[in-house]
């Protein structure tokens, strides 16, 4: 994000035509998997369509996407698989559509998680951002609907936000195509490791809690080697989440780590 691009260039197809090839659904192999997460109705599907050239039905109401959609694009010779997830307010929720999103973010092992946030409702959206940042090191925040924020006289300081969160923040108005070029570049740099994130972590854990978590994580990792988010599982166990306890007993927890399992959850 070193060079600034004028908005006229950004929306012009010539500008990144050389770099971006929209693949639609024709994906047989890929280098990176990118997940699109975010609160309901923040424009995830619009971002998805802008990057893949697909035309997922979009609608102005929360809950429009109930299953995940996949598409692909090529950027800088790398093949990306983009996964559009149902919106979710929190990683602790339990409805079927939100579970699809949660399981993929937690156990689908995306290379980059793009969190699409609504610039006009930043505070509530940040709750999910902070939860996602607890569990991944490679994330990009897409500060969407910046045009609406402007219309409501809101000014969001994206640079300070990036500093606070420790991950790149890209202001965007996906409906108009604004910011999509910058978003692509940033995804590419995070996936390739040119940008290293230092995500914000909640610091309020008491020493007791930390010790308890460490002990549990160790045991969980012994039972399920390769599970990507043992810490989250440990947290849920401490809270007594029945779904997670069931998954632990039945061994289904281990399957969640595998790529295909999310499709099974969604089906």
């Amino acid at each position: 994000m070193s060079q600034t691009i004028s908005p006229q260039c950004e929306t012009c197809p010539v500008h990144h035509a050389g770099n971006l090839i929209k693949l639609g659904v024709n994906m047989d192999s890929w280098d990176y998997v990118v997940a699109l997460a975010g609160n309901p109705n923040t424009g995830k599907s619009t971002v998805f369509n802008a990057l893949t050239g697909l035309r997922q039905h979009t609608g102005n109401w929360p809950g429009k996407t109930v299953t995940r959609a996949e598409g692909g694009f090529v950027y800088h010779d790398k093949r990306y698989k983009l996964v559009d997830l149902p919106g979710t307010y929190s990683l602790l929720s339990t409805s079927t559509d939100e579970e699809v999103a949660r399981n993929f973010i937690l156990f689908g092992k995306p290379d980059v998680t793009v969190i699409v946030v609504d610039a006009t409702r930043l505070e509530r959206n940040l709750n999910l951002v902070l939860q996602v940042l607890e569990i991944t090191d490679r994330a990009v925040v897409c500060l969407n609907l910046i045009d609406e924020a402007r219309r409501h006289q809101l000014n969001v300081d994206d640079r300070t936000l990036a500093k606070e969160l420790g991950v790149p923040v890209v202001p965007a108005a996906a409906r108009q195509g604004e910011g999509m070029a910058a978003l692509l570049g940033t995804i590419d740099e995070v996936a390739g490791g040119q940008i290293v994130c230092k995500p914000h972590r909640i610091k309020s854990e008491s020493r007791q809690v930390r010790a308890a978590l460490e002990a549990l994580v160790k045991m969980i990792q012994e039972r399920f080697p390769g599970l990507s988010n043992a810490r989250w599982v440990a947290l849920r166990l401490l809270e007594g989440d029945h779904h997670v306890i069931e998954a632990l007993r039945s061994g289904a927890l281990g399957d969640l780590g595998q790529e295909k399992s999310v499709g099974q959850v969604a089906a």
Partner: peptide, 27 residues
């Protein structure tokens, strides 16, 4: 660790979210 644990975790997430958004959003 007591049953305050979940609440205190959520509280700190909300607190941080509030603080950050107050810093960066300017009406």
């Amino acid at each position: 660790i007591g049953d305050q644990f979940h609440d205190s975790l959520m509280e700190s997430i909300y607190r941080d979210a509030e603080r950050i958004s107050q810093t960066v959003v300017n009406k």
